[in-house]
Amino acid sequence: MTTKSFQEHFDNQIENEVSIEPRDWMPDDYRKTLIRQISQHAHSEIVGMLPEGNWITRAPSLRRKCVLLAKVQDEGGHGLYLYSAAETLGISRDEMIEQLHSGKAKYSSIFNYPTITWADMGAIGWLVDGAAIMNQVPLCRTSYGPYARAMVRVCKEESFHQRQGYEIMMTLANGTEVQKKMAQDALNRWWWPSIMMFGPSDADSPHTAQSMKWRIKRFSNDELRQKFIDVTVEQAKLIGLTVPDPNLKWNEETGHFDFGEINWDEFWNVVKGNGPCNKERLQARQKAWNEGAWVREAAIAHAQKSKLKAAKNNKQKSETA
């Protein structure tokens, strides 16, 4: 086959919704786009462990402690599934981690915001995981097989995350005055960063068109953002919290909520590294990785020694036989 016929074959598969698998021919840019997107996604899970991990040691009940620990652990698992999916494209996990640590690879900006009170655990589960699920459910049908399969697993596990977050918010909203205040304060701080999670407006999103054509992406940033706002506003109302957007209003004509101006200046600044916790997050990851180096080396050294020992034993056995 010529490159042209490879390309035709690939285009046909995409057109007919046939998954692309690791050993199939694929255009270089498709591969690069996937590596970038999947590794960013994996990094987001791993960095995302940090803001919530903050509160594992301070959770207010043993039940909450277990739930939060299990949830943050799940995020580690999700990072692992995603790194594995990216590895099928020919990049190693260590390389991806290097890219994260050097600042070359990005991760979701939301995790550069601080978790200040316990209510932030509720807000993150409800809003951040809620937004993530909006993004992720369509990815279960993304065109690259290993990515789609990883996302199926992630989405299956993720469903408890949003529910536990909403449950925390609900408990606070039904609680004492100070608890209500805590819940509202968390919603105030996390609302805008959450709706920024869907990324820049379609007009300013350079990769969207190509990604949609390749069926990597299924919906545009703005479509998903609108969907998220429509469902979340109702959920806030249900527990008596107020979404911090004075311009929020139901639009009969469109059947959606209109909402206020997003502060894209803030968004791009956080992306560029000027968020409140960018430095801390990256430093925490670098520290864990660097301090773990001798541990990883030791395990490899031991495995090699054991292999040699086993080989020697086998040889002796066969000589005496």
Binding site: I46, T57, A70, A284, A288, G292, V295, R296
Partner: peptide
Amino acid sequence: SEWCGHGPVLEQDIALSNIALDHIG
């Protein structure tokens, strides 16, 4: 549980959280 998110390698981070969950349980 203090290790969660700070382990030397992802797989062991996850393993340690499982163990912590057993103890708290």
